[in-house]
Write a protein that binds this DNA or RNA. Structure first.
Lengths: 197, 197, 197, 197
DNA sequence: TATGAATGAGGGTTCATTCAT
DNA sequence: CATGAATGAACCCTCATTCAT
């Protein structure tokens, strides 16, 4: 008959596991990530894990779904305020922020995707969503006379999304430029690449 | 006891293994690729493999090094002919062609990189090389008054290389646009992104 | 805080568990039968089980003991009324009826017996009891001049009991003839096998 | 370039494993039988097992198939020589001998059957085969005027086969009479049960 | 009395690598 | 050079049982 906060015991354990997984998986190639490490990090018995997650990949999927939901949220914001440069900057900044916050999860996500269909599909879905939104914005800009008339919107949407994703991914892996410098630079390239002078 | 041909028996076995690895690894997540499958595909005993390659990743590394050497070759071509658009298009087209030819190898390469330091380093080296060459070209173009004066060449080099790499990678994985349409579109974006109107 | 009925709350919970076990175990190989399933079927918490039964096999043992008691009851009835054929038929019919009523329990009983000494011993005891009673009846019949003089009563008692048990067991498993046809046929064989023409 | 007997190295290892399994499984409830024990008994590494058998039950299935083949052989012998008693005795004696030789295997076979469909099916097949042969013999005897006219051949075939199987099984488990005494006794019961006086 | 969260021993299976032939 | 049999470390997962509430 305890009142112990708002969450039940089970919910707290689940949360502990999710937190532990985040750190236990960080920087570790997916095939070397051990369920046991997650449990040790969570201070939880080995079997407890399987009361909450069906298998090794389930916990990663849970983490990834959270992050993917945030990316969806970002993609679904209104993209066009009239000031195209600011629109682009806002989305890129948002993407950098979300990626930064979950950089460790993103890394494992991509590493595990080739062998885990569920994770692979999530990658595709999120990418498609972004590409679709970029494309829509470009079409709208074209109709408003803001984009270059000769633009191939399909290629442009795909390529710009790819540019931002890959640049940010490498940056957060420490293999590119620090993310701080990226937002303005990427915005600048994006704007000049597609909008009228 | 024939000596015919220019290649020794060992050289031919090694070649058979390399060929077999290429197909045996294709489309298979790195952790599920099995040395035995390579040997079976090569029509060679399981133990024979270790007479030619020290371990599982060595054969992939050998395949990757070939491909990386070609990428190096592409990066080291002269980039500036005066006609910037054609220069850019030529490099992009070259990159698409090389990637297409070794698409199966590239896929495993990236999949294995997180867990195999040697492969990871190769990725970094090739990327750095490309970024450096792009950056040099942008600096030259800037000095020649062809590039936008306000350009952040570091970000631009990183981002444009990332754009091309990621777009082509996704295309060859069947998750983006067909590569045929990419060369012109990417060139167009690149040129407008960095060069004066 | 109702006290209605003659049974205490604990007694009712115990009964619920026994009922649930019967159905939860039915048709499931003993090593795949799970305590949790019994509890779920009983609508009772997982931990509650161990307030009533010491371990997984205890509940099966309880079910089996009930059934075994009925079998004992059957064995202990008077076997000899003078009309040997009717005596035999009555016992076989009784055995078929008891087996039919608890067919699911019998199945698990035999499946679990090899790994659970308590259950194994119960099987032996019941079998011995039947064999002993059959033997006694044969001896009596012999003394009355009803049985064949050259009969090996030990083998006969063992074998006839085995015949009935195995035939009925297979029938109820759906792997033999339907039980309906068995009583008369088994009686006929039994009678001709041991009694004078 | 060794000549080492007639069997290859692999065949010998496989044989060692089969032998080891026979003893390692003997008297052990199926769910407690360990692959590792088999390997230790065979003096073979843990992984070697899986080069020869796909999983734990495969090796038992192999042992059982051998035994089942012998039982088939017995069932398929000619059953009718004219001297019915001798025919019956010969088959029962054969069955006792085969069962005796593989008593350990039979025990595990039956114990594992409920949870291993392949083994279960084998049990059914062998039983059906025997029942069918017995039935055919009874029909033939009926036509020759040797069997009782009022016999229910379906029940008789099922029940006599069951009688022999179960009596022998219990005997070899040490829970009945020694097998030595059984052959004559069972033959006697069988003959009187179905044949004319 | 009832609960369900937590436990952890235990076992089957895979596959890169070695080595005797 | 070539072979393929042998190895064993490593890891995921199940489930009977305990215990704090």
């Amino acid at each position: 008959m305890t009142t112990e906060g708002r969450t039940t015991r089970g919910e707290r354990t689940r949360a502990k596991l999710l937190d532990a997984a985040r750190t236990a998986f960080a920087g570790v190639p997916w095939n070397r990530a051990r369920v046991e490490d997650v449990c040790r990090a969570a201070g939880v018995g080995h079997g407890t894990y399987y009361a909450y997650f069906a298998n090794k990949e389930a916990i990663l999927e849970a983490l990834v779904r959270r992050h993917a939901a945030e990316l969806y949220g970002l993609a679904e914001q209104p993209w066009t305020s009239g000031d195209v440069e600011n629109d682009v900057r806002r989305v890129i900044r948002g993407f950098v922020a979300l990626s930064e916050a979950d950089r460790d999860i993103r890394e494992v996500w991509f590493a595990a995707a080739p062998s885990e269909p569920a994770l692979h599909d999530l990658v595709s879905e999120v990418r498609s969503q972004f590409v679709a939104r970029v494309r829509a914005a470009l079409v709208a800009a074209g109709e408003a006379g803001l984009a270059r008339a000769d633009l191939d919107v399909d290629v442009a949407a795909t390529a710009l999304a790819a540019m931002v994703e890959q640049t940010v991914t490498l940056a957060q892996r420490g293999e590119g430029l620090p993310t701080a410098r990226l937002v303005d630079g990427l915005t600048d390239l994006w704007v000049h690449a597609v909008y009228r002078a």
